[in-house]
């Protein structure tokens, strides 16, 4: 084998490897965006339960005005979420609003036992549970994709391809600061 042919083969292999690595990074980046869209889509599913929540709040409006206010806050927060930009801060705020709303709902139910037994409430709680499960799963999938994307641009030789051609930056995973505040231990990343 002549040295020229050997050099040509090596160059071709290197170019093919660069293309494969570049495409893989783009593929993982798109998967992260898609996973983020799923998180937002699941968050917006909350709009489905808001009318039922308002119905419950309206029924007990004279005593539970705060519940209606929390529904409004959640609705406003949902409108701020965008599928186009990865904004974990707004997502975190929305989750806080949802948490506050659920706390308010629990207090209302404790004050009105007949509400707890009502079919609307039972269906509502089942739907809320499923939605929260889906949001939790969507966030875990998003975080896992972010991890794989970050690995994909940081490990060698992908880091070289990324710095020279793809120019993608590491992404931030979603973490629940409210839940993290409950732990004394803080990881020293």
């Amino acid at each position: 084998m002549s040295p020229t042919l050997l050099i040509v083969i090596i160059v071709c292999v290197v170019i093919a490897a660069i293309i494969l690595i570049h495409n893989a990074i783009i593929g993982r980046f798109n998967a992260v965006q898609r996973a983020w869209s799923d998180v937002i889509a699941q968050e917006r599913q909350k709009n489905k339960i808001l009318p039922a929540l308002e119905e419950v709040a309206a029924k007990y409006a004279s005593h539970e005005k705060q519940l209606l206010e929390k529904v409004t806050e959640l609705r406003q927060s949902l409108t701020q979420l965008s599928a186009d930009t990865i904004d974990v801060k707004t997502l975190s705020q929305t989750e806080s609003h949802m948490g506050a709303l659920l706390k308010g709902l629990t207090l209302t139910v404790e004050a009105y036992p007949d509400l707890k037994a009502s079919e609307t409430y039972l269906k509502l709680m089942r739907e809320i549970t499923e939605q929260q499960d889906n949001i939790g799963a969507a966030i875990r999938i998003f975080n896992r994709n972010v991890e794989q994307f970050n690995n994909g641009i940081q490990i060698f030789p992908n880091s070289i391809v990324n710095s020279m051609f793809t120019h993608k930056h590491t992404l931030q995973v979603f973490d629940d600061s409210e839940a993290a505040a409950g732990f004394e231990y803080k990881p020293n990343f």
């Binding site: 993982r28 998967a31 898609r34 996973a35 869209s37 799923d38 999938i141 998003f142 896992r144 994709n145 794989q148």
Partner: peptide, 8 residues
């Protein structure tokens, strides 16, 4: 293909 890379 769902969003999850693990699923894919």
């Amino acid at each position: 293909q769902p969003a999850s890379l693990d699923f894919r």
